[in-house]
Write a protein that binds this DNA or RNA. Structure first.
Lengths: 127, 127, 127, 127
DNA sequence: GTGGTCTAGACCACC
DNA sequence: GTGGTCTAGACCACG
């Protein structure tokens, strides 16, 4: 379900966060679904429990998941996206960087849009 | 010319690398142009010479710039982008992450394409 | 295991790189083996941690070693040599220089081939 | 006659030294031949006179060339190669490094010997 | 514990 | 003047 690559330069806790968000977007995880416990997930992906815990905490901070004390962790029921200026600016900066990199390895604008289209299709597989 | 934010979580040397690449793409820096010396740039942006040096060395490794022995550092004359598989995969992964983030703050596909268009226009200012 | 001569004109970080590559070729270091940590190696060879770090980063860039986040640095499992034109040209230039030097101190072609054979034997000690 | 690449990481004065030695080995320059003056050569190869001067001094130290005061610089008449232990050790170390590099970009022993043969043929063109 | 980044300040080779 | 290397010592993110 979640792929974690300890060789990647991306921190493992970030990989977990992104993996869970991706599963929610794809509809594999639905609002109200129970997530594996910290211990379960940490043994599934061979990671340190502290690392999984950090990811869950961050997801909870972002209100993507909810912890019900004693019952476990669940995909939030009423997640409302909020588009604040800061995150928009941030996204734009990151996107800009990627575009510059892409131009520098020789990709054209068309190839980039194709790539993005593919990513969108990939995300809608299960919806 | 190059803006560096020492409070950003992005390493300073990366900001330098990205800034220079951006200036080249925009046509502000042309092939053959001399870059400020390590010491000059380091004092311009209030950073340590070693930090600037690291950025220059990485840019040279990528063949974006060239150093002429004892004369200084210059924008490479014949930069040839080469699209290797690794960097492509990497780009796609980063793009995916950003798209997921964008969807999570409520952006639509159209808004994303708009944003990308704006970035492209921004990069062509001087071309 | 790794000999470093601080009086040599060859930079220390290069000596580290070459030493590790040699140990891998000889089979003293096997794929997956853990390398000493930056701090360990730096104290072993009486060098600054930054110097060792630089060597490790260059080896990682060449995909000779891999770092696992927070766990340490390891000999890469699946190293695939790739023969690009640049490095080939470079090798030939270096080889030419050495041959010229050798002829200048009076070595014959045969003596050179003998020397090379010896080097090959030396590298296969543990294989 | 002598090719100098200011982009190369090899110091220019070394390129001059190697270039002259190569020309002598090839027979393009014969014992007793006059070399261009420092000023002539420096303007021919677009280098700083000091750099050419340094190269000539080093060649003279190695007894490869001789300076006759007021007359100019000449290829030495009676150059005798001397194979001392130090330079042999040095050559072997350099050769070892190159061989390791070559193995690391995937060359086989045969390909290396082929490469060396080609270099020898190249050096004997004019003999 | 691990490696990654940065600073301050030094020395060197090269041009 | 230029960049390249090294040291000493600090701080941080990550697991």
């Amino acid at each position: 379900m979640i792929n974690v690559d300890s060789r990647s330069s991306k921190p493992i806790y970030e990989q977990i966060i992104d993996g869970i968000k991706e599963n929610i977007l794809k509809g594999i995880l639905l609002p109200g679904d129970k997530l594996p416990s910290v211990r379960e997930l940490s043994s599934m992906i061979m990671a340190n429990p502290n690392t999984v815990s950090k990811a869950y905490q961050e997801l909870e901070r972002q209100k993507v998941i909810e912890t019900l004390r004693g019952k476990g962790t669940f995909v939030a029921l009423n997640f409302k996206p909020k588009l604040d200026e800061d995150s928009l600016k941030n996204l734009k900066a990151q996107m800009k960087k990627i575009i510059i990199e892409a131009l520098y390895v020789g990709m054209t604008k068309e190839e980039m849009f194709d790539m993005i289209d593919k990513i969108f299709k990939d995300l809608e597989v299960e919806k």
